[in-house]
Design a protein around this nucleic acid. Structure first.
Lengths: 203, 203
DNA sequence: ACCTTAAAGCAAGAAATTTTGCATTAGGGT
DNA sequence: ACCCTAATGCAAAATTTCTTGCTTTAAGGT
């Protein structure tokens, strides 16, 4: 028989506590700002004891990272409209919206910091593996999904750009706007980026 | 006669203290990581008393921001090679180098966080003015410099891209690579971005 | 050289943040 | 239903972070 695992219990109360804490973190990120987010505050608002938060997440950074990762991962799936341009435009416009609001910028900043140097002391699940983690986990997942979207287009006989081109021409500018300027990016501009992408010289 | 100013004294010792602190922050950012940077540590290493750091900068964030801003501002000036392509390529390659190294990524992250919600309690100079500061100060300065570079090209009869295009097509991707993937960006790739920029349809 | 006082140093204390040992609650398997 | 124990709650203590009042040092002007 296999080695007896410590028998985790992710259900019931644990799940509720997790949800409550996550919710409060999201609220606080949105309303307060960024630096006013302390474990003490989250504990008070959520009714979850400080000790629990310290034991489960360890640091504010790890907590934020957990929240952000879940949030980003559960973001609306990549579109499948039937045409390459349709998919790209929907993706770009949605990304622009997500990332534009005051909330989006916060998420971006948080994501940028996340999952790097210090991992939580107690939580093995998403533990940072290597020293120089190549990227934020979210990016990898999303990359795979986007590649699938491009592959679908190729399967239909269209000639899609590469994933790198998509990231560089559409995603990077949107992130850039959100991160360094607080100005929102309109749907029209997002579509202009897609135009630019589609008019790149095909390899 | 004018109102008697408090008569600042930025010289001598003050300057030395500032330099010492800045140097230590740079070292710590480079060697340790990001989260291990505490005022206590900076004080100990620099030989400057904690109290001084608290009074001059107030928070770690403000301190980092000050260091980063100075560092970025003093970055090599925008090039002036005599041709648009030359300027752009030199700029792109240098930016890629600056931003690529382990240090560059840290700077980027720090800059991204900097100058937003909480300003230092005691330091009027670079105080965050509005509620929703449009961008990092550095970005504005650099934007002006880059615009001048583009204007020079226009003055020579070349037809340069807009500043927005330059930022979106060259700068954003470079930042994106540095921020979300730790992979360095080679000079060749940087130049490819310039090619892409220059082959955009002219307005 | 000699004042004046901004800026830095120092030490004590206040206020947070984080840890720890034990009691209590409630999953989840039998 | 019952048991075992992971997960949480609780309170006290340890630790770190930040503030405050006062003293000392040294710019920078005369």
């Amino acid at each position: 028989m296999a080695v007896q695992q410590p028998a985790r219990r992710p259900g019931g109360r644990t799940a509720r506590v997790r949800a409550a804490v996550h919710q409060v973190v999201l609220d606080l990120l949105a309303e307060e700002g960024w630096s006013d987010l302390s474990i003490a505050l989250v504990a008070e608002r959520s009714g979850v004891h400080q000790t629990t938060i310290y034991r489960r997440w360890g640091t504010v950074q790890a907590l934020i990272d957990d929240v952000i990762t879940e949030r980003l991962t559960r973001l609306s799936p990549v579109p499948d409209t039937g045409t390459l341009r349709g998919d790209l435009e929907e993706y770009a416009v949605r990304l622009a919206e997500d990332v534009a609001g005051a909330r989006g910028a916060l998420f971006l900043r948080a994501a940028m910091l996340g999952t790097h140097a210090g991992a939580a002391p107690d939580v093995p699940p998403g533990a940072t593996s290597g020293a120089e983690g190549p990227a934020h986990v979210y990016m990898l997942d999303r990359g795979v999904q986007l590649q699938a979207m491009l592959d679908r287009a190729a399967g239909r006989g269209e000639s899609p750009p590469t994933l790198l081109e998509l990231l560089e021409v559409v995603q990077a500018p949107l992130y850039f706007h959100a991160a360094f300027f607080n100005r929102p990016v309109g749907a029209d501009h997002a579509r202009a980026l897609v135009d630019r992408l589609l008019s790149l010289p095909r390899a």
